[in-house]
Design a protein around this nucleic acid. Structure first.
Lengths: 195, 195
DNA sequence: CGCCGATGTGGACTAGAGTCCGGTTATGTC
DNA sequence: GACATAACCGGACTCTAGTCCACATCGGCG
């Protein structure tokens, strides 16, 4: 027995209530009590399933993330297999930016609810693994560290800053980050950099 | 009248108490009430001076940051003026990593207390300005965005992850990030990236 | 079909961040 | 040196995240 029938029912009710409330009032205008009340369950039930508010966000994002992950693993190039590493990375960056565009509030919540949360989600491990692999295949040194650098630039908070505080347009941002990807993927300097 | 004498006295008492308590029990083991009580002031006084817990961290960090900033502006090369842009950037990265090494808890607090806090401190604006200037002088395209990318990689949370979760040694990290700096500073690809 | 242990449930409770406001004290003026 | 006023002070208060545990419910088993 993995999950009791009533537990499954409540889990779905919580998810549905959370999605509705977040949509209605925005992520920050909803308390955990609100979610519990709207779902018709107690707070204990809520916290039993979802570690904290961030965990709720992670659960809501889960399905959407899977779609993107599936495209990365088995979809058409350049996002999916078949393309060269750098174009695939660029495609990933663009796809991930679009993903953020649609779910920024939720991702922000999932990444900032607890300190260090961003680096601990399963989804993050997936993106990192993918970037590592492609950077390595592109011949970049320190592929794993550079994957982290790339993903740090794609953190919800950073992207929110670029898009909202600095009002950069989505395409310019994607283009600039594509150039960053190319720079990070290059295997070694061809000469002296700088002046 | 800029600051009443009693207010100044209390500000110093709060700072001294906070520094002592943070040192004794660690940043997360100290509540704002603790600080207020130890300083012999009420909570209202505390919050009047320092917006929130993060603001307290910012104030404590302030003096140390100024030292580093001074070295960057007027100290000996390669950190100070005189060296070429890329070596100066590399020196900044190393110096900033050492700064984090000593004050990680406080910086972490200052960056995570409020969402978006990291990008809003005065110190951050300074680092960003410096990196922008040097990247631009190195001929990098999108110098301002790339400065943000570099600083995102140097966020307290990311560096903490590398040093503590992944147990990377400080020198290896500095070396790898120096290579990243060089890659970001390069003006343009020398050929096709990838295959 | 009724018992029993495992699992789930709800809501009172704790804790800590941040707000508010009536009272207090410093500082400039005469 | 007394007054007016603006700044400051303190601690009670609110709000929300997250914990805890006595009780209810499920579902396998005899």
């Amino acid at each position: 027995m993995r999950e009791r029938a009533d537990a499954a029912r409540n889990r779905l009710r919580v998810l549905a209530a959370a999605e509705r409330l977040f949509g209605e009032r925005g992520v920050s205008g909803v308390t955990m009590d609100d979610v519990a009340a709207a779902a018709g369950v107690g707070k204990g039930t809520l916290y039993r399933r979802f570690t904290d508010k961030g965990g709720l966000a992670v659960a809501l994002l889960d399905e959407r993330e899977r779609e993107l992950q599936q495209l990365m693993l088995a979809g058409p190039p350049p996002l999916g297999p078949g393309a060269d590493p750098v174009p695939r990375l660029v495609a990933f960056v663009q796809a991930y930016l679009q993903f953020l565009e649609r779910h920024l509030d939720l991702v922000l919540l999932s990444e900032t609810a607890a300190p260090g949360a961003r680096l601990r989600t399963g989804a993050h491990a997936f993106w990192r693994q993918h970037c590592r692999y492609l950077l390595d295949r592109a011949g970049a040194p320190d592929a794993d560290l550079r994957a982290d650098v790339l993903l740090a630039a794609l953190s919800a908070e950073q992207v929110r800053h670029w898009r909202e505080d600095e009002e950069r347009d989505a395409e310019g941002l994607a283009g600039s980050l594509a150039a960053v990807v190319s720079a990070l993927a290059r295997s070694r300097p061809t000469g002296r950099a700088g002046a």
